[in-house]
Amino acid sequence: MALKIIESCVNCFACEPVCPSQAIFAAEPHFLIDPKKCTECEGAHAVPQCASICPIEGALLDSLGEAINPPGSLTGIPPEKMAQAMAELRSH
């Protein structure tokens, strides 16, 4: 069982030092989790540390492949509002 970092990661370094299992490492094009080392923070913390500090919605997936921080959950921007704003910008 392990978490996974996907391409929306912005390489902000925040997760790397908070991992109790030293499972996270800098890589190209983005940070990665070594699935053999990741313990999902079991036994060390009540919640996965990487997913608790990561500022990017959707960058971390749980072992089922689902976003731990879905759109809107961290920024507070309703997803439809974001989509609307981006569509408006593109039409300019």
Binding site: V10, N11, C12, A14, P17, I53, I56, L74, T75, G76
Partner: peptide, 14 residues
């Protein structure tokens, strides 16, 4: 210093 420990509504980390 790339990492942050809070989110502000005037900042976008992306």
């Amino acid at each position: 210093a790339p990492a942050c420990n809070i989110q502000c509504h005037y900042c976008n980390r992306k």
